[in-house]
Design a binder for these strands. Structure first.
Lengths: 343, 343
DNA sequence: ATGAAAGCGCTAACAT
DNA sequence: ATGTTAGCGCTTTCAT
């Protein structure tokens, strides 16, 4: 039942009684085609069930119509959401998305990424945290003439980026806990090598300072953005003499660990301990009690990042040559039953 | 700093002092090249930092070196895992993975998928549940000469597939609860249009029958594989006069809902109610108590499915022409604190 | 406003 | 064992 072969631009040209160049013009929305001619070409293409061969287009054109997403072990929902956002733009622009898993701690990361780009011919990269924050990576990419956009870039930024204000969001969450009446608020720090960890901690500290409270070392505990590290951190925070009445974990996975450890110790959440997270991954709604957290618009961030990348690609300029440009999107604080006023 | 242009096969040929065909032979591991020549070519390629242009290769060859993953709203961790498994094989075989989100309830699904394949020129498809179970889809794909492999196919299967024995796994879980001493075991059914739902329910029913127990309608409650539907289902099951001492939900998200509703009613888990799930998504470990569940080797399934697809592609035969071939991989039952003997 | 012709960088017959 | 020669199906000058 399979058709003999797929229609080519020649078939369409013949069908419409024009040259292949005219067909190409119509297909690429170039000027200088009479509306009547355009219609005829479109009709012929439709009738023949014609789709341009991407390989031929890539080979002849200057672009590969391919971008890649570079990531290192993100939470599954983050990956799924960001992909969804990117795909939305790719679909409408006729681009493909390639996935590039990598190890952000590998010394050879930059070199390997340049090679991967050379090999796959991708037109540009979307870098998710923490990949985008790797020291020297952006410089290497820029030097190699590779276009990219970063999600949640931290620190002094070069080039394009999309983010939320992590610092402000953490500030808001801490302030919310303070306004509930909490005065001893524990904080579980994120992965030390992720840029967002620093920003979120800064927000937490700033809020305490605003309330004239000291940030006691006993209120801080190091985590790694994993469930297990959240349990460990909670263990440390809760065995202190004057234990906190609330714990703010830098992400939801760790907050789940905090809740687990609290319940194991017979503490009730939120009556004995309020717990807050960050990210609003699916588990936040599935925990008992449901978790107070910050929602990042991950899908929208992926979408906007891709739009910026495409603009940059077609502008011709390279990322690094134009002014730094990081767009901030809105986050939302979601108050759920895991937080309450201290007793 | 950007290089003038990327090296081509001609550059390599010149550098090695051979013809481009010989370079091509070396690159594609074809026979009839003297080892010494091979070495020379390889050295030249390396020295020139040469990578074959995928677009040219696709255009000239008969393959696109591209496969697609078709999915409809899977759990993020399922998607991430299956992608990881597929990518593993793609990387080693020089293939790319395209993502194709779709709506498995759309009447035009089959037609749209054929068009998408024509447009993107993918060599083959990996279909995740429930997409692979859509009536008529496989026939349409086969008729169009499109190669595919299904994950977790249900029902009488045509063509290639990779799965676990969902029915047996559900049987095992139910039997485990029975052996703990439970006699009233509630069951939350999965999405009515997912093939796995039927299989898992069959396993549950078979285990009860094996123990000479009747499957009372009051023990069954319809869910949709979502958290909310799990809560609803638990509400129905728990307000019955003789309420179950254990509830087996067809997936983890619904099990999370069951736990939430049970705790809301003041029931303790597992003391007053045992809860079990299916899938072992990340939340299973994050819930309090941690969830007893079935682990599917999703990544391995994605990997194996891709291997089968590639074998099929290079065999030349079409999927539908050979004997049905569904490989079953091992699952594992994970006993965690959410289940215990009834009091 | 439209067309002719020359590639893009490979693979695939077909030599040799 | 290696080379020659056509394409693959587009985009891109450059004509007209």
């Amino acid at each position: 039942m399979t058709e003999g072969r797929q229609a080519t631009i020649k078939d369409v040209a013949k069908g419409a009684g024009v040259s292949i160049k005219t067909v190409s013009r119509v297909l690429n929305d170039e000027p200088n085609v009479r509306p009547a001619t355009r219609e005829r070409v479109l009709a012929a293409a439709k009738g023949l069930d014609y789709f341009p061969n991407p390989a031929a287009r890539r080979l002849a054109g200057r672009r590969s119509y391919l971008i890649a997403l570079a990531y290192d072990n993100p939470s599954p929902s983050y990956l799924a959401d960001v992909i969804e956002g990117i795909m939305e733009v790719c679909r409408s622009d006729g681009y493909f998305l390639a996935l590039h898993g990598c190890d952000f701690t590998a010394p050879s990361l930059a070199r390997e990424m340049v090679n991967a780009v050379r090999e796959s011919r991708v037109d540009g990269l979307v870098l998710t945290p923490p990949v985008g924050d790797v020291a020297g990576l952006c410089e290497t990419l820029s030097d190699a003439g590779i276009h990219y956009v970063r999600l949640a870039p931290s620190g002094p930024t070069k080039g394009l980026g999309v983010s939320i204000n992590d610092r402000q969001a953490a500030f808001d969450m801490t302030e919310y806990l303070l306004e509930l009446g909490h005065r001893r608020i524990g904080f579980v720090q994120g992965h030390p090598r992720h840029g967002t960890s620093r920003l979120r901690e800064e927000g937490y500290r700033a809020a305490l300072e605003r309330y004239g409270l000291e940030v006691e070392p006993a209120l801080l505990s190091q985590g790694w953005y994993t469930l297990e590290s959240g349990i460990e951190a909670a263990r440390a925070l809760l065995r202190a003499d004057a234990r906190p009445t609330a714990i703010f974990a830098s992400n939801d996975d760790m907050a789940a660990g905090v809740i687990q450890e609290a319940l194991r110790r017979g503490l009730r959440v939120p009556e004995d301990l309020s717990v807050a997270g960050f990210d609003d991954v699916p588990i936040a709604r599935m925990l008992s009690p449901r978790l107070t957290t910050i929602r990042q618009p991950v899908q929208a961030m992926g979408k906007r990042a891709t739009e910026l990348l495409f603009e940059n690609l077609s502008s011709g300029e390279h990322v690094s040559t134009q002014a730094d440009r990081v767009e901030l999107l809105d986050y939302r604080m979601l108050v759920r039953p895991s937080t309450a006023a201290p007793r």
